[in-house]
């Protein structure tokens, strides 16, 4: 690791202040950031650890909304969220237990790894992502690989998930990393169905609109049968070709619908 100063503010305001300095970067759970630093792939001057800020911790569930403070770990979400089981289950399958005890929802969304699970849930639920400055709809938040609409120094503080009538997340593991080789989150709100896909596309998490239309009319896995995903935009690597990932998107979507 390159040298840096590690700050540990105790309040949100202190954290925002610390992040306003040039070269400062937020450190959430660190489960991606720290391996990146170890390999000297990042060189912040200042890391602002937000793990000790109690304002950023906790889950509340009211009026059909699950509100998760940004510093809440995957483990806490998995163990406490009751009204949105698909979301709890997704959180309970990120990484491994020790990673889930450190990794946070805010960190995951801000990083927007194209194979991460949370972006699929946020996009499929059209979650509202609140920062110290504003609230951003998930549809406007994800901007491609590791890119989001967050500004410099802007910090996610809370994520609100409208609870759907039915939802399910199907994750097909990349065999080594256990990230999603393909993950599909299906959420049904009345007649509106949202299908968000992670792991598959070179543009990061995306909505599979053809599937959404088909499912809006007929919410059953057979509705997907006639659809094909265009392999062109899919990721290709040693774990799967474009056409393999395109197939997985379809299979996982069907399975998610069937499990709803």
């Amino acid at each position: 690791m390159y040298d840096f100063a590690l700050q540990r503010p105790q309040s949100l305001n202190e954290a925002i202040e610390a992040l306003s300095v040039e070269g400062a970067q937020a450190l959430a759970g660190g489960q991606t950031m720290i391996p990146t630093l170890k390999n000297r792939l990042a060189s912040p001057d200042v890391l602002v650890s937000i793990g000790g800020i109690s304002e950023l911790q906790g889950v509340s569930e009211t009026d059909g909304t699950v509100s998760i403070k940004a510093g809440t770990t995957h483990g806490v979400v998995a163990a406490t969220v009751e009204s949105y089981p698909a979301l709890a289950s997704l959180a309970g399958n990120i990484g491994d237990p020790a990673v889930r005890n450190r990794g946070t929802i805010g960190g995951s969304l801000a990083n927007n790894d194209p194979s991460a699970c949370y972006p699929a849930a946020a996009l499929a639920s059209n979650a509202s992502i609140t920062t110290n400055k504003r609230t951003i709809s998930a549809s406007d938040f994800f901007m491609g690989l590791f890119e989001t609409s967050l500004d410099e120094g802007e910090l996610i503080t809370q994520v609100d998930f409208p609870v759907p009538d039915a939802a399910n997340y199907q994750k097909f593991d990349q065999p080594a990393s256990r990230f999603a080789l393909v993950g599909v989150f299906v959420a049904k709100y009345g007649n509106d169905v949202r299908v968000a896909v992670t792991g598959a596309s070179e543009d990061g998490v995306f909505r599979w609109s053809e599937a959404e239309s088909a499912l809006a009319g007929n919410f059953s896995s057979s509705a997907i049968d006639g659809l094909e995903v265009d392999p062109e935009s899919m990721i290709e690597d040693i774990h799967g070709s474009r056409s393999y990932r395109a197939n997985l998107v379809k299979v996982m979507t069907k399975r998610a619908v069937a499990a709803c």
Partner: peptide, 19 residues
């Protein structure tokens, strides 16, 4: 699988890619 690409880079060079 230790996978090399044609340039001789080890593509599966960490536990993130070597299963």
């Amino acid at each position: 699988h230790a996978v090399y690409n044609e340039d001789g880079q080890l593509v599966s060079g960490t536990f993130m890619d070597y299963s």
